[in-house]
Design a protein around this nucleic acid. Sequence first.
DNA 1: TGCAACAGTTAACAAAAGATAATTAACGTT
DNA 2: AACGTTAATTATCTTTTGTTAACTGTTGCA
Lengths: 197, 197
Amino acid sequence: MLSTEDIQFYLGIFKGLSLGDLYELFNMAQVKRIPAGGIYIEQGATSKKLGFIRKGLIRAYRIKDNGDDVTLMLRWENQFIASHDTVILSQPSRFTYQALEDTTLMEMDYGRMENILDSNPKLSSYRNVILLRMLSEALERMESFVLLTPEERYLQLLTEKPNIFNRVPNKHLATLLGITPVSLSRIRKRISQTPKR
Amino acid sequence: MLSTEDIQFYLGIFKGLSLGDLYELFNMAQVKRIPAGGIYIEQGATSKKLGFIRKGLIRAYRIKDNGDDVTLMLRWENQFIASHDTVILSQPSRFTYQALEDTTLMEMDYGRMENILDSNPKLSSYRNVILLRMLSEALERMESFVLLTPEERYLQLLTEKPNIFNRVPNKHLATLLGITPVSLSRIRKRISQTPKR
DNA sequence: TGCAACAGTTAACAAAAGATAATTAACGTT
DNA sequence: AACGTTAATTATCTTTTGTTAACTGTTGCA
């Protein structure tokens, strides 16, 4: 399931965990493959799944009343993914989680996981690190909506995560930025026309 | 420092904590008073303060390049407040934290606090609850920017936190919603003109 | 090869928001 | 009671975005 290179790699990712901790973590996980376009978590689902993406890319989206879908979040390699509705709020997921590429992930049951976390101080302090990182990301994204214009948000995304532009259609990036695909297209044109002074 | 009614009250707020836990928490705290308009944390500050607001209201803001200030967050009674730059990212605070009312808070040093948390499982699991709640709030706010129009965000704030409209000037609420005060004024007019059918 | 499906761009118009400035209103202070 | 300060509203104009629909380009598949 895990090659020796994998193990080296993940010891680097999960800083501070021992080999035993790592096994404990991955032992309660099952490998799951989702083809491009496939669904990982359905809207309305209630099971508390926690996934760790080994390869691929997943987007969370929601269909608005007027029919168009809005992307809320993107997750890719070596990131955890879960419906925060089910895991944090214990309510049916308001969003659908869809793979945009062929995706391989390690899936765990969050309920079972919590017990294991509570009995292993290193794992539970690692959970804290992850939580803080997620909180920090969410706050930063929040700030970008308050402090930046759509155009500035686009430029920020372009410089901070240039790689995702090769992996995700612009229309999804547009709604992620809080604007329509048409508007993103105009922003791109505007920028390309402005000589770089 | 804490009256018996206070103790009853806080045992309710900090669910799951014993009287001893509560004392341990409040014992490392100092009471701090900030007059309306006063500053709690300066922009650029690096000390890892964690405050628990007993009375009053604090806003985090930032002055943009063009000179106007933007409110990022509001916190009031029985909420924790901290600069996430200093506490999570160990970097100078990009924001200023200002009391909008005469405010009383319990101030703790986060570094010292972490040690105590680590040695008390109930406190540390309580920290987790708080972190999850904060993460959930941040995600929900993020979602509101992606899924709702400014007008819908205003109405959401109005129904979910009606009380803050009596405590915070509209201009701060406007920037909190990601719009200008002028625009908020227009939204309010638009709504008042629409018959409530 | 041809065609269906879909992403991206462009166009045209309506609606909303930003910027700036003037006006009104509320409040506290002298 | 008059004044100064500040928040909120209103007006005017510019810019941007939303909406809808047409058009272009690419890709994969029959």
